[in-house]
Design a protein around this nucleic acid. Structure first.
Lengths: 127, 127
DNA sequence: TAGACAATTTCGCAAACGATAACATGACGA
DNA sequence: TCGTCATGTTATCGTTTGCGAAATTGTCTA
């Protein structure tokens, strides 16, 4: 209810901005990507883990059950199952039940499309 | 000091491996990438963060001091400084001292080369 | 030389991550 | 159909990560 137009003390340096125009312009540029960047980061984060990369490469050779993936990579099924869920949530894996076994396979098309699109986007913006 | 050749109970399912051949083959395939995968994951992990992506995009517009980057992104200089260090350690940024100011700029060539190479590697292995 | 300011480093905390441990589910034999 | 065993998922715990506050460093200037 204060009516004074006092400048709010921002948590960061509030005085010196050495290139106000430039800063404002770049800020506006970034604002355009407000939606895309978090999604991009999410996908790259998923690729930023050796276990998950190994799972993707393993499944590139064909369908596998959780147990076999665990053997290939050398971790417990629980650990693998957790990572599989993350990759599945991203839409890069598909699963199929057969009795008590669960087989996972790569959704190559979606994965490769994501890789290509994201890479292109970044390269465009960074060039 | 036990001399019995008792089977060590591994932390994971030790009996059933449904496609031993396939598992062994894929395991061997992955072994070839033993060195590359962690490096790949490291780079993707670095890209898997919105703040760092914003820094890269901001610097794509040209050289900036830490203070201005902080303004652009809306975080404290301390936070930015920390992320700048990570990106610099990866070799994607260069810095220049000018008095008490420090200017950062993108090492576009290295960054773009890394992006291109990593993307190609993954797409090849996943195709 | 003292003071001011940009940047970095250190420390602490909250949130996210990853692997282990407990649990649920389905298959198969007695 | 009941028990039992193996597969796979969910819950739990320790570690790591990202950010902010405060202290430190280094540089310019009065």
């Amino acid at each position: 209810m204060k009516t004074t137009s006092k400048i709010i003390t921002s948590p960061m340096c509030e005085i010196t901005c050495f290139e106000q125009e430039k800063v404002a312009r770049i800020k506006a540029e970034l604002l355009k990507e407000e939606v895309l960047l978090p999604q991009l980061a999410e996908r790259y984060k998923l690729l930023g883990n050796t276990t998950r990369l190994k799972i993707l490469l393993a499944l590139a050779q064909g369908e596998l059950c959780v147990c076999d993936i665990a053997h290939v990579i050398g971790l417990t099924m629980a650990a693998i199952s957790h990572q599989l869920k993350l990759l599945r949530d991203q839409g890069w894996l598909a699963m199929r039940n057969d009795g008590k076994m669960v087989y996972y396979r790569l959704r190559s098309d979606d994965l490769l499309k994501a890789l290509k699109d994201d890479g292109r986007l970044l390269r465009e913006r960074l060039a």
